[in-house]
Amino acid sequence: MHINFPLLLVLAVVITGLLALIDLVWLGPKRRRARAVYEAKVDVADPVVLERMGKEPLLVEYGKSFFPVLLVVLVLRSFLVEPFQIPSGSMKPTLEVGDFILVNKFAYGIRLPVIDSKVIAIGDPERGDVMVFRYPNDPRINYIKRVVGLPGDRVSYAGKELFINGEKVPTSVVEVKLDEDLPAGHPMQNIAEVRILEEQLGEVEHHIRVERLARTPAAQEWLVPPGHYFMMGDNRDNSNDSRYWNAPDMPRELWGMVPDNYIVGKAFAIWMHWPEPKLRNLPSFSRVALIH
């Protein structure tokens, strides 16, 4: 079950705002009139009675207290910055499971909350951006990948090498090590190698992860249609992304490219790492960094 938090937040703002408005235009003046009538009838007003007559109903009191807080949260989350937690390793080594990230909500345009309709165009995704978007097969789920192909690009992937518009994307080896993700006792634990490569996508230099023994998919080429983006995870052999759009032989759920109206925002910083949010496991701030 997926909770539509943006919708709940909007409803909370509307309800608390209505309570505050009702008190402003009706309940508040009614209380003041009642106090004025009481004070006119008695020689000495009882302070306890005055306090009771001026007291706001509990629901109104809570509504007026929470409305400004919820409104600020709605504005910040909808138009400025939204936090997310990384649930999988598809973006390793850039992002680890348990990283808490910040996403710029206005980098690609101002969108209305809940309906996600763009009302003000500001910029477009650029090759190399790490982008959060709604999963095309289930828009209630947020995904995060790297922008590889822009509208009109020809993207090819062959022999675990990436080509854009016929040109190989340059890479260089940073590190070769054993696969740390294999569980203890795995038969391949001592021979399965992982290569960490530095890749240059547009103006962005970043690291990707490639497993030597992982299956090499058949060479494919895609043409990115207008208004869409070709997305790939930095953990190239363990990422469900745009490469599997027309590859029925791959054991992954097919979803293709990301339309513009499914974009959430640009990830720009890691602010905390907490793989298991429990009281006995405290968060770490050792991974605080800008995302490239």
Rank of each mutant, 00 (worst) to 15 (best):
F79G: 08
F79L: 12
L80T: 04
V81F: 07
E82A: 14
P83Y: 00
P83W: 01
P83E: 04
F84I: 05
F84L: 07
F84A: 08
I86S: 07
I86A: 06
I86T: 01
P87M: 02
S88L: 03
G89Q: 06
S90P: 08
S90Y: 05
S90C: 02
M91C: 09
P93E: 01
T94M: 04
T94P: 01
E96T: 14
E96V: 08
V97S: 05
G98F: 10
D99V: 13
D99R: 03
D99M: 03
F100D: 02
I101Q: 04
L102P: 10
V103I: 14
N104W: 04
K105Q: 13
F106M: 13
F106D: 06
F106L: 08
A107S: 15
Y108E: 01
G109I: 01
I110K: 09
I110G: 13
R111Y: 03
R111V: 08
R111A: 15
R111P: 06
P113V: 04
V114F: 11
I115R: 10
I115F: 15
I115W: 12
D116Q: 15
D116V: 03
D116I: 05
D116A: 14
S117W: 13
K118L: 05
V119N: 10
V119T: 08
I120G: 06
I122G: 12
I122Y: 05
I122P: 02
I122K: 01
D124I: 00
D124R: 09
P125Q: 02
P125I: 09
E126K: 07
R127E: 07
R127M: 10
R127S: 13
R127D: 10
R127T: 09
G128V: 01
G128S: 11
D129L: 00
D129S: 02
D129Q: 02
V130E: 00
V130Q: 04
M131K: 12
V132M: 03
F133H: 05
F133L: 12
R134E: 15
Y135S: 08
Y135A: 14
Y135R: 12
Y135P: 10
P136K: 07
P136D: 01
P136I: 01
D138Y: 00
P139Y: 15
P139D: 06
R140E: 15
R140C: 13
I141V: 15
N142C: 14
N142H: 12
Y143C: 07
I144L: 05
K145N: 11
K145V: 05
R146I: 04
R146T: 00
V147C: 07
V148A: 06
V148P: 11
V148N: 04
V148I: 15
G149N: 03
L150P: 14
L150Y: 08
L150D: 15
P151N: 11
P151V: 03
P151E: 13
G152H: 03
S156F: 09
S156I: 00
Y157P: 14
A158T: 14
G159C: 13
G159D: 08
E161A: 15
L162C: 01
F163N: 06
F163K: 08
F163W: 11
I164A: 13
G166S: 02
